[in-house]
């Protein structure tokens, strides 16, 4: 089983972001970066499938500046076999531009499965996986939280609003991974050492033409300061009054 996992280097979200001087990008000073959580679950899924099959190869692909090699190394230290770095001076916002470059790399790879995260929390597009699937004309199931494989076919579960879809698909396929599919393993010390010696190929990305352009990035309007209505059950009547007369939701 040959599996590709597309992984993105994303900022740690637990900070106060600043808009860069150009007004259209994020100031990266002091921001820490790591492998996207959804992508870590995708790497874990690939490793589990390979382990179950007893053979196969897990290839990790990431597009961006040289710093994404660190992200690829993290996936290699979890146990992936080799990495491909698609060079671009920055990670574009546009899913279509990224998807075109990933599809060009994946096209002749002979992969049985191509895994993505459901969403990258920085750009928040949740679009890259299904666009790649279309460009490659490969079946696609998005946002899966359970996966079973048997006889070259897969069954996946998708959580949708208030319900679940059970979806069947043939291989090769593109899947995007939601939370709940698994818990990602931590790289072991041995894994970290081994990852340093694993092959990591680096080549220019063939980015697609971008049809979307960020004109401006801003901080969202602050919520007006709220107030503490009171303490304990005694505050309930006042809250009810405010919900009725001020917020008009009751």
């Amino acid at each position: 089983m040959k599996i590709a996992v597309c992984v993105k280097r994303v900022p740690d979200m637990d900070v106060r972001f600043k808009v860069a001087a150009d007004g259209t990008s994020v100031d990266e000073t002091g921001v820490k970066f790591d492998l996207n959580d959804f992508d870590a679950w995708a790497v874990e899924a690939a490793l589990q499938l390979k382990e179950k099959a007893g053979q196969g190869e897990v290839v990790v692909i990431s597009l961006g500046p040289n710093s994404v090699q660190e992200t690829i190394r993290k996936a290699l230290s979890m146990g992936a076999d080799r990495g491909v770095h698609l060079q671009a001076d920055r990670i574009p916002f546009d899913s279509f531009a990224i998807a075109s470059a990933l599809a060009a790399e994946l096209k002749d790879g002979g992969y049985d499965l191509i895994l993505f995260g459901k969403l990258a929390p920085d750009s928040s597009n949740s679009a890259t996986g299904p666009i790649v699937a279309e460009l490659l004309n490969v079946p696609c199931v998005t946002a899966i939280s359970r996966l079973e494989m048997a006889d070259g076919r897969g069954t996946a579960k998708r959580e949708i609003e208030g319900a679940q879809e059970i979806v069947e698909f043939p291989l090769p396929a593109v899947l995007t991974v939601d939370e709940g599919l698994n818990t990602a393993r931590y790289p072991s010390l041995k894994g970290i050492m081994a990852a340093k010696k694993k092959p990591l190929e680096s080549k220019p990305a063939q980015l697609g033409e971008s049809k979307v352009k960020i004109e401006k990035i801003e901080l969202p309007p602050e919520r007006a300061a709220g107030r503490i209505v009171g303490e304990g059950a005694a505050a309930v009547p006042e809250l009810i009054k405010l919900l009725h007369t001020e917020a008009k939701v009751l």
Binding site: D122, E215, E218
Partner: peptide
């Protein structure tokens, strides 16, 4: 043009689509 929350809603981008 559209408005699109980014970075878990901590930023909002104004984006034009060609």
């Amino acid at each position: 043009t559209v408005k699109h929350p980014m970075n878990i809603g901590k930023l909002v981008a104004t984006i034009s689509i060609q």
